[in-house]
Amino acid sequence: MLTDKRGVSYARLLVTHPHTGPQAVYDTPRRARVTAPTYAGDTVTLDLDVTARAPGMLCVEQHDPDWGIWRAWVPVEACEPLRY
């Protein structure tokens, strides 16, 4: 089982990627369908809020019952904007 030093599982969390360059935080989050790997090695598709951008990357906010709010940087290609 994948746990941090507090014993909280992070297996369901999206893998975050390093990024370089400037970041821009959105005033209002934007929804996107994100297909990306978790730390457990599974690929999942989730509808999430995009809260910031950096060159080639988007920051998404994932809500997990054990972890709380997790922010992960994922490649732009992993996100499909959702229009309502």
Rank of each mutant, 00 (worst) to 15 (best):
L2F: 04
T3I: 07
T3K: 03
T3A: 07
T3N: 01
D4C: 01
D4N: 12
R6P: 00
R6I: 00
S9C: 04
A11S: 12
R12F: 08
L13W: 03
L14Q: 02
L14N: 01
V15W: 14
T16A: 12
H17G: 04
H17A: 11
P18C: 09
P18F: 13
T20A: 09
T20C: 05
G21F: 09
P22W: 07
Q23A: 05
Q23K: 01
Q23P: 00
A24G: 00
A24L: 02
D27F: 09
D27Q: 10
T28N: 10
R30F: 14
A32S: 14
V34T: 10
V34C: 09
T35W: 10
T35S: 13
T35Q: 11
A36P: 06
A36C: 07
A36M: 06
P37Y: 14
T38Q: 08
T38P: 04
G41E: 13
G41R: 05
D42N: 11
D42Q: 09
D42F: 01
T43L: 07
T43Y: 10
V44H: 03
T45F: 14
L46F: 14
D49I: 04
D49K: 02
T51F: 08
A52H: 05
R53Q: 11
R53F: 09
R53V: 12
A54W: 06
P55L: 10
P55V: 11
M57A: 03
C59E: 03
V60W: 03
H63M: 03
H63Q: 04
D64F: 00
D64W: 00
P65Y: 07
D66E: 15
W67T: 06
G68L: 13
G68T: 08
G68A: 08
I69W: 06
R71V: 00
W73S: 02
W73P: 02
P75Q: 12
E77G: 04
Y84S: 05
